[in-house]
Simulated scan of single mutants.
Amino acid sequence: MHIKSPGVGTDSLSKAQKEFNRLTKRIARLEKEVIDFREAATAMRQRVQNEYRPLQARHNDARAALVRQLDQAFETYKLTKGEKNKITDLIGQCIDLLERGHENLQPIIDKHAPPLSEEEEAEADKATSEMMKQLFTIQYGIEFDPDVDVSTQAKFMAYVDEKMAEREAEYEQQEAQAAERRTRRKKSPKQQAAEEQKQAEEKNITKAVRTLYMDLVKHLHPDLEPDEAEKLRKTELLKQVTTAYQANELLTLLRLQLELQRIDQSHLENLAESQLKYYNKLLKEQTRELDEALLAEQQDWSAFTGKPYYFTPTPVAMELDYQHQKSGLDYKIKQLEAEVLAFGHDPAALKAFLKTHKIPKAGTGPLIFGR
Rank of each mutant, 00 (worst) to 15 (best):
P146Q: 08
G141P: 04
A127D: 05
D125R: 15
I109D: 06
R100W: 11
T137G: 11
I91P: 00
Q197S: 08
Q174V: 13
A165S: 13
L90M: 13
E175P: 00
Q139S: 12
K133V: 08
L135W: 07
N204W: 10
T128V: 07
D125F: 10
R100Q: 06
E170V: 11
E168D: 12
Q153I: 13
R181C: 09
K187H: 07
I108M: 12
V160L: 14
Y171A: 15
A178S: 05
E143T: 15
A122C: 02
Q134Y: 01
Q106G: 04
E196K: 15
A193M: 06
T206S: 13
F136C: 09
A200R: 14
E119A: 10
E168L: 03
A122Q: 14
L98I: 12
Q139C: 01
A154H: 09
H102S: 08
L116Q: 09
L135N: 05
I109W: 03
I91K: 06
T183V: 09
Q139M: 07
A158G: 12
G92N: 07
E120K: 12
E196M: 02
K186R: 13
F156N: 11
A178D: 01
I108G: 09
R167V: 07
L116K: 13
S117M: 00
Q173Y: 06
F156V: 04
D145E: 09
Q139Y: 12
L97D: 01
A165C: 06
L97Y: 04
Y140A: 13
E123M: 07
N104Q: 15
S129V: 11
V150S: 10
M164E: 15
V148A: 14
N204I: 07
Q139P: 00
L90P: 03
E170L: 15
N104I: 03
K126H: 11
T206I: 04
R182G: 02
S151Y: 05
R167S: 04
A127M: 11
A127K: 13
R185H: 00
K163R: 15
D145P: 02
Q139N: 11
K163W: 05
Y140P: 00
I108Y: 03
E143Q: 10
P146I: 09
Q191G: 05
K155E: 06
E170D: 12
S117D: 13
I95H: 09
Q93R: 09
H102D: 05
I91Q: 06
G141E: 09
